[in-house]
Amino acid sequence: MDLKELHQKKIKEVLNERHILNLPLVSKDAGINTIFSVLTGRDHIWIVDKKGSKKLVGLITESDALKLLAPSRVPKYAFGWRHGISLQYGTAKTASDIMHKQLCICSLDDTVGRVLSRMVNAGLRRLPVVEKDEIVGEIAVHYILQLTLGKV
């Protein structure tokens, strides 16, 4: 597919059913062991408000789980409480303790080009597609690469 043409396309035109049905969703009160077991199969988890709901409230990635395994230390100048969250001290109990709460999102009407530049700006490889606070799909760099090669 022509790159320029791809950039003009809207997310809803390119979104594949696979990226709508097969989302890794876990509720925010899920225990840390659930998170780890889901992460053995997927490299990220979208955290939703409660079981059955699709209201997106957070994200946990592989690297967040890795950080939990490292020995925790307090930074040079410490404020707030986020440095206190660690598996080592039993302070990371549920998904909501460790998730990213402020997410970069996109909507069905955004163009691929816009989504790509948002990913570049934020240093991310995957954005949730959100409509009215509910997650309806996800779009990843990997998938866009497949599109450019016409392998979808």
Partner: peptide, 21 residues
Amino acid sequence: SVGITVRALMELDALHSNIGQ
């Protein structure tokens, strides 16, 4: 400033306790 308290509570393994929170 809680930095020093957080460190002390970590050493006591008390950060997850009610008090720590």
